[in-house]
Amino acid sequence: MSAIDFSDPATIAFLTDALTAASVAGLEISAPSGQLRIVISGAGEAKIGSNRSVQPGSVSPVLVRAPLAGYFCVAHLSGSAEASSLPRAICATEVLGFIRVGPVLLPVSAGRSGTVTRLLAEVDAMVGYGAPLFEIEVQS
């Protein structure tokens, strides 16, 4: 079986049509030969990005999201002072904030090492499941 050529315009068009029809927001494929990213941007238009080789050392933003609904706190002890000192380097296990439900605080870990660049939720506001809380730039 021959490998699919993801740089082939016909393949890209087929995948774009399939994603649009299925109402899927986007797709990213990484292969030894390169990377293909299709982002459906609404009203049937798609943004397509393709590069033949992955640049080592490139930086990509990652969102840290709320694991459940509750009230968002930046940090248990240091309050919003941490938020004002962005950007800052963090490790994967570092707790960036908490989701508070009554007396319970659920820690929100970074999940990966990198640099926290932005605080995306309002402190002490109610957030839903999956709400973006922080943006981290990860070195790939």
Partner: peptide, 13 residues
């Protein structure tokens, strides 16, 4: 009020 309670899978939301 409007709150997201879980993933798309209905079993989890």
């Amino acid at each position: 009020s409007f709150l997201c309670i879980g993933p798309s899978n209905a079993a989890k939301s």
